[in-house]
């Protein structure tokens, strides 16, 4: 009997076996345009990124701070749709068949494309992370019928024990621990609280627990990687992409990711 691990499970288990921490990089699909997003995705992987989180732009992204919110607006100005993003992932897969891809966004855009979502695993997408659904619901319960993709859920500092238990039961892939009370890109990390809460989460699940929201420097990343199975970098990257988009030269981003990758390996 052969057990087939999904690409995401495979990657996380490889990292675990090698005692390495996962580096997850977030960028908004279509900011500044889809060709650049594709170029950046490959560049990220070459710079040590293990998993890519593709932001799906939405007009009303209530969990995002000003930096990512502005990126959503820019991506919508070039009419980026979820349909385009499925194509983008398919294109990415022609050159990269190992790096897991997670689509992160808001329920309304996903529901508008629910039919297409049924086959996105065949087109290279490995998981979805929908920010504004109750973490204890399964994808089927909210109207997405695809059992071949993982559903990554968020747990936050305000999630109580009962909810942690329920969320762990329906989550797959990994648990995304939101490291602060606030929107993406904020800056009030409390490493002690994060450690305590991640320890609590581990009592209810064997899934890896990754930390994200507000991680900016390689010191932040290093600190948090000690108490988690990996880190998610978002707003800093989105900001850098925007700064560099006029010159179309993204080398400093790759240098930055390399530094983070080294910092969390130590």
């Amino acid at each position: 009997m052969v057990f087939l691990l999904s690409r995401l499970e495979q990657k996380l288990s490889e990292l675990r076996v090698a005692s390495k921490k996962a580096l997850v990089a977030y960028l908004v699909a279509g900011d500044p345009d889809l060709e650049t997003t594709l170029e950046l995705m490959h560049g990220f992987v070459a710079s040590g990124v293990d998993i890519i989180e593709l932001g799906v732009p939405f007009t009303d992204p209530i969990a995002e701070g000003p930096i990512i919110q502005a990126a959503h607006d820019r991506a919508l100005q070039t009419s980026t749709s979820l349909d385009n993003i499925f194509d983008l992932v398919e294109e990415f897969r022609t050159k990269d068949s190992d790096t897991p891809i997670i689509l992160m966004g808001y329920i309304n855009t996903f529901l508008a494309n629910s039919l297409a979502l049924e086959s996105i695993h065949e087109r290279g997408t490995d998981a979805v992370l929908i920010v504004d659904i109750p973490g204890e619901s399964t994808l089927a319960q909210i109207g997405i019928n695809n059992t071949n993709i993982a559903s990554v859920s968020l747990i936050s500092p305000t999630t109580d024990r009962q909810r942690i238990e329920k969320i762990c039961q329906t989550s797959s892939g990994f648990i995304y621990y939101v490291t602060l009370r606030g929107v993406t890109g904020a800056s009030n990390l409390d490493v002690n609280e994060i450690e305590t809460n991640i320890t609590n989460i581990r009592m209810h699940t064997a899934l890896p627990v990754l930390a994200g929201f507000g991680i900016k420097t390689s010191v932040d990343a290093q600190e948090l990687s000690k108490v988690s199975d990996g880190v998610v970098i978002g707003s800093v990257l989105v900001d850098m992409i925007h700064q560099q988009s006029s010159q179309k030269d993204y080398k400093n981003i790759y240098t930055y990711l390399n530094e983070i990758s080294v910092a969390i390996t130590q």
Binding site: I62, I107, D132, I133, G135, P157, D160, V178
Partner: peptide, 12 residues
Amino acid sequence: GGKFVPETLMFA
């Protein structure tokens, strides 16, 4: 109806 919000708000 329902409660479609980021996890941080569920507690509140």
